[in-house]
Design a protein around this nucleic acid. Structure first.
Length: 783
DNA sequence: TGGAGCGTAATTTTT
DNA sequence: TTACGCTCCA
């Protein structure tokens, strides 16, 4: 081996070296958290290039822009010339679809629709098929269409397999939706994958050509691939078999978005001659943290066994904290951060994770109260802002004149006297002539319009033509700048700002600099173009921009925490119904995903890990009794005695409760025969964390002395079928009722809580819904 | 055209 | 509690 390779491999452990040195044939790298996976990938790419493979023949696919740009930087810093293809699945899709547009049934200038645009298209599809939302909720159709696309099912195929009325309705909407996208020369996010997969599958020669172009392919986070991505990966590597998949089944947390953990679990079946390498040594976390996480994940059945180990110190025990309520929890976390910061840590050493965003409120309050700087990691902030979308809409319509969604967004922003009636007329005309709205506008004489509307439309058209012309001879940044002034957006937002609105102008200025950046740091071999900029913008979330800012505590959901690491980690709200989330309690598979989610969060911690839960939590304005997550028990019962340390902050003066607390690791199932447990779906393990029935502080009774139903709404953990109170005293489960939108349904359960009677009602074709009866306008039909 | 007022529902969101 | 979408009215 030459000196360069020796030097490169010097810092790697045995399995890491083996993976980095692997050359031909399928390779699966099962990489535990913190096991140096990125190093292995980058080193392998560098060694391939060093060994004579042209970087242009290497393709690396990641899931996030961030991962892609990190990989690019690291590979280049190791001395590999530019030219390697490093893309996200979606960006690769755009590339290939533009290149082979006609074969994919597209025109190369297609627009990428985001969620909001999609919704608009969906609304139009409802209109076109004469479907009403009361028949089929838009989210249901939206989800179903997304599922189809993930699984490569076309509208025809879907229709062929539909027998229920709902399915047929969805099939028709799906079909109309696709037709509208085609008319507008637009694709949605899922299309970027589906159309690419189908392009490769249906055109063997293209797949073959690409196998030659990309002699080595590397796919990161393979556990998160969905069907479409799986097909893309397969088609791109089938001929040479040089696929290197890396990932960790234990960190698969996106099944709900179509990711199929079986893709990675069955890799060896798909590629029988695959080499499998496990990276089990962890370089991130202290021993006890790792052990606790390992014990938890060992409870999953759908996995490939892995033994995580570390040479690092055992470190401090993992803390499990119990609180009376969420406020105490937040306070304590804030206090702990404060204290440790005073002892020398930086605020940016800390992260707080939670299952759902709604939890962040209380935590923020507590941090603010103590003057602790924090930042919330939210994806998709910047480009979702109204002002940004307004400005982009103008650019989009210029780039793709068929983009009706964009046109509707900006035609009357700022207001130009073009009202609803006018737009309806234009749309009717457009539908009639099967022409884009811009065409209709430019031949507006055909539509009978009122004076001000006609004037407004003329003004709008003039702006478009002007900006279009300007764009021909100017940079994108300058074009945006010009657009802002010419369109009146600048004036409009300036006025808004002066009357006390947000500083939207600053954001628009940021958009201009984003365009400058795009033009300067051209990484693709394409010329910078308006289309290219818009593509970049649609594929980018500002997760990539916001990066862990120095000096701030980071707050984020467990999902967003994946791939990050922090010296000190708090996971708040480790409660039954929260983590695992109530919506996942239905199936064991879903609970396993929640367990993986918890595992992901825990393994982000380097030195200290705190898991906390509260006995009561303010949820949707209601104080709701909670109990510890089963995961806490799983961690404790598996791990050695000194691994986890429990701390009870509920009431330090009541010894009997401390007794229970101290007892909680000892076995013995709660008999739990009462309704409380059955009703709330509290697991046996978790129930041990609850106080005894004779504990005065614990039970909650509503006014009429009926036990309060735990606040798990909906189907996930149906409370016992009780009776209503007050005017609903004689309403019972099983009765038929009528709801004004959903029609006739039957009561699944009914219960008075906090003076409001709630009921879950099952409707044919709609499913189960929960209502507050006082507000829902539900009429009783009989038993 | 825009805003008030009501009804409704409420995980997670790499792109 | 809170946020959003829709309807209706000024």
């Amino acid at each position: 081996m030459d000196a360069f390779s020796e030097k490169l491999l010097a810092g790697l452990n045995e399995p890491q070296r083996a993976a980095a040195l692997h050359r031909n044939g399928p390779l699966l790298v099962l990489a535990g958290p913190g096991s140096g996976k990125t190093r292995v990938i980058t080193h392998r790419a560098v060694l391939l290039a060093h060994g004579g493979v042209n970087p242009r023949n290497i393709l690396a696919i990641t899931f996030t822009n961030k991962a892609a740009s990190e990989m690019r930087t690291r590979i280049e810093s190791l001395g590999v010339a530019r030219g390697m293809w490093i893309y996200t699945f979606h960006a690769l899709g755009v590339r290939l679809l533009r290149e082979f547009a006609p074969l994919a049934g597209l025109q190369p200038g297609f627009t990428i629709y985001d969620d909001a645009d999609q919704k608009q298209v969906l609304a139009d599809a409802y209109e076109a098929t004469g479907t009403r939302e009361s028949m089929l909720r838009a989210e249901v159709a939206h989800g179903a269409i997304g599922d189809c696309k993930n699984r490569l099912i076309t509208p025809d195929e879907y229709l062929a397999n539909s027998d229920f009325p709902d399915h047929i309705a969805i099939a028709r909407i799906y079909e109309a939706y696709e037709q509208i996208l085609r008319q507008r020369n637009a694709v949605d996010f899922d299309d970027l994958l589906m159309k690419t997969a189908l392009l490769l599958r249906r055109n063997a020669h293209i797949a073959e050509e690409l196998n030659i172009r990309f002699q080595y392919s590397l796919i990161d986070e393979y556990q998160d691939t969905n069907r479409a991505q799986y097909v893309i990966a397969r088609e791109l590597t089938q001929h040479h078999g040089n696929i290197c998949a890396t990932g960790d089944p234990d960190q698969s947390i996106y099944a709900w978005r179509g990711a199929d953990i079986n893709n990675i679990l069955a890799f060896e079946r798909d590629y029988p001659d695959a080499t499998v390498i496990r990276l089990e040594q962890n370089y991130r976390s202290h021993g006890r943290i790792l052990e606790a996480a390992d014990k938890l994940i060992a409870c999953n059945t759908q996995r490939k066994p892995k033994t995580l180990w570390t040479e690092r110190d055992a470190g401090e025990p993992v803390q499990v904290w119990r609180f009376m309520n969420d406020r105490d929890e937040a306070e304590r976390i804030a206090a702990t951060i404060s204290e440790q910061q005073r002892q020398g840590r930086s605020f940016s050493d800390f992260a707080i994770f939670y299952r759902i965003n709604a939890i962040s409120r209380g935590l923020e309050d507590a941090l603010r109260h103590r003057g602790i700087p924090y930042q919330i990691a939210r994806g998709l902030e910047f480009y979702n802002r109204k002002e940004i979308k307004d400005a982009l809409a103008y650019l989009r319509i210029i780039a793709n004149p068929a983009d009706d969604v964009a046109l509707l967004r900006c035609i009357n922003t700022p207001t130009r006297g073009i009202g609803k009636t006018t737009l309806e007329r234009l749309m009717a005309e457009g539908a009639n002539r099967r022409k884009p709205l811009l065409d209709v506008i430019r031949t507006a004489g055909a539509v009978n319009l009122s004076g001000p509307a006609a004037k407004g439309i003329a003004a709008f058209d003039a702006i478009l033509r002007d900006v279009e012309k300007f764009a021909e001879t100017n940079t994108i940044a300058d074009t945006i700048d010009h657009l802002l002034r010419r369109s009146g957006l600048e004036v409009m937002y300036k006025a808004e700002e002066e009357s006390g609105g947000e500083d939207r102008l600053a954001n628009l200025r940021e958009l201009v600099s984003a365009a400058t950046r795009y033009e300067e740091e051209q990484i693709d071999d394409e010329e910078p173009s308006l289309r290219g900029f818009l593509t970049r913008v649609s594929l980018q979330s500002d997760q990539d921009v916001v990066d862990p800012t120095r000096g701030c505590v980071m707050l984020m959901t467990l999902h967003t925490s994946k791939g990050l690491e922090f010296p000190v980690v708090f996971v708040a709200g480790v409660e039954h119904g929260m983590l695992p989330h109530e919506r996942s309690l239905r199936s064991e598979g879903d609970i396993e995903e929640e367990r993986r989610l918890c595992f992901v969060g825990m393994t982000r911690a380097e030195q200290r890990l705190y898991l906390s839960f509260a006995e009561n939590r303010l949820i949707r304005g209601q104080i709701t009794p909670r109990c510890a997550s089963q995961f806490l028990k799983e961690i404790q019962s598996g791990a050695g005695k000194d691994v986890v340390e429990s701390c009870d902050f509920t009431d330090r003066f009541r010894s009997e409760r401390r007794g229970i607390w101290a007892d909680q690791t000892a076995g013995g199932e709660d008999d739990g025969g009462g309704w409380g447990r059955a009703a709330s779906g509290i697991s046996p393990g978790a129930s041990r964390w609850r106080a005894r029935d004779d504990d005065p502080g614990e039970r909650v009774f509503s006014k009429d002395d009926a036990p309060q139903v735990r606040g798990f709404g909906k189907s996930a953990a149906p409370p016992a079928p009780l009776q209503g109170a007050g005017p609903y005293a004689d309403w019972k489960a099983g009765m038929l009722v009528r709801h004004k939108t959903y029609g006739v349904g039957s009561i699944i359960w009914i219960s008075p809580s906090s003076g409001q009677t709630r009921a879950a009602i099952k409707f044919a074709g709609v499913g189960e819904k929960t209502f507050v009866l006082d507000h829902a306008g539900i009429e009783r039909l009989g038993a």
